[in-house]
Amino acid sequence: MLRSILGKTFRLLGYTLQYGCIVHCNFEYIGGVVMCSGPSMESTIQNSDIVCAENLSQHFYAIQRGDVIIAKSPSDSKSNICKRVIGLEGDKVFAHSPSDYLKSHSYVPRSHVWLEGDNLQNSTDSKYYGPIPYRLIRGCICLNIWPLNDFRFLCDNPNGRRFSDG
């Protein structure tokens, strides 16, 4: 009887470990569901909206201008940020910077991206901390799923006017 109980327990632990690994790999490499907080992406994404993010484009270096991405915050490694990609490496970006990072324009360095929130008056973004390394990008937001009345794809580029090709 003890052997039967131990066998079932180890089998359950083995299945739990396997499914845990599958779930982890799914969220790390394929994508997942994320709740966005803060006003920086309003009116595209509202505070507390729930979105789907895919991580494949980040792994295949397929991030494009206009994509809304999730990245590790360059100022706080424990938190994530949700911003729009305005410039890729080599692009000339124009911004009115509250910091000394930009005088009037700058080029995005190699392996970096320039990020800005859609709510320009209320966004801490590359205007403050400069371009971020590509390795900080976690995924690309593709779908707004909650609230249901705002269900839509987020793959279009409504803010393409804010960047120029180098």
Rank of each mutant, 00 (worst) to 15 (best):
I70F: 01
T16C: 11
Q46K: 15
Y129M: 06
Y134H: 08
N80E: 04
D165M: 12
N157V: 10
I22Q: 09
I5T: 09
K83Y: 08
I5R: 14
M1P: 09
D49E: 04
F151V: 11
Y107C: 08
I137E: 05
W114T: 06
N80S: 12
D118L: 00
R110Q: 12
Y128R: 02
I81K: 00
Q18P: 00
S104A: 10
S43H: 09
D91C: 06
C82E: 03
S106I: 11
D100R: 13
S77Q: 12
Y15P: 00
C140D: 08
N144E: 11
C36M: 04
H105Q: 13
N122E: 10
S123R: 05
K8M: 05
M1Y: 11
F27N: 12
F153L: 15
I137A: 07
V93S: 07
C82A: 12
F27D: 12
E116P: 00
S37L: 05
K83I: 05
G90A: 07
Q121Y: 11
I132W: 07
E54I: 04
P131V: 01
P131H: 03
K127Q: 08
K78C: 04
H105V: 04
C25Y: 08
D76H: 14
P133H: 10
H59F: 15
G160S: 13
D156L: 13
S106C: 13
Y134R: 13
F153T: 12
D118M: 03
P133G: 02
G160E: 10
L12E: 03
A71P: 01
I22M: 13
D150Y: 08
R138A: 07
A53K: 01
M35L: 07
S164W: 04
C82Y: 03
G90C: 06
S4E: 12
S126W: 04
N47V: 02
W114V: 11
I63P: 01
D118P: 06
E54T: 08
G38V: 02
L13Q: 05
R135D: 13
N47M: 02
P133M: 08
S79M: 14
L2E: 03
Y101L: 15
Y19S: 07
P133F: 05
I22K: 03
N149C: 09
G90E: 04
L17K: 09
V23A: 15
D76P: 01
V85C: 10
Y128N: 12
Y129F: 15
M41S: 03
N159Q: 11
L2W: 07
G87F: 03
E42M: 11
G7S: 09
N122K: 14
N80F: 11
P147S: 07
P131S: 15
L102E: 11
S99E: 10
M41P: 10
G32F: 04
Q64K: 15
M41N: 05
D118Y: 03
V51S: 01
S48E: 06
L115P: 06
L120T: 14
G38Q: 04
E42N: 14
R65L: 07
I137S: 01
G117Q: 07
P158D: 09
N144I: 00
N55K: 15
C140K: 13
D165V: 14
G139F: 01
I69L: 04
L17D: 01
D91H: 09
G32M: 02
N159K: 14
D49M: 05
G90V: 03
T16E: 01
F94Y: 13
Y29F: 15
P109E: 02
P158M: 08
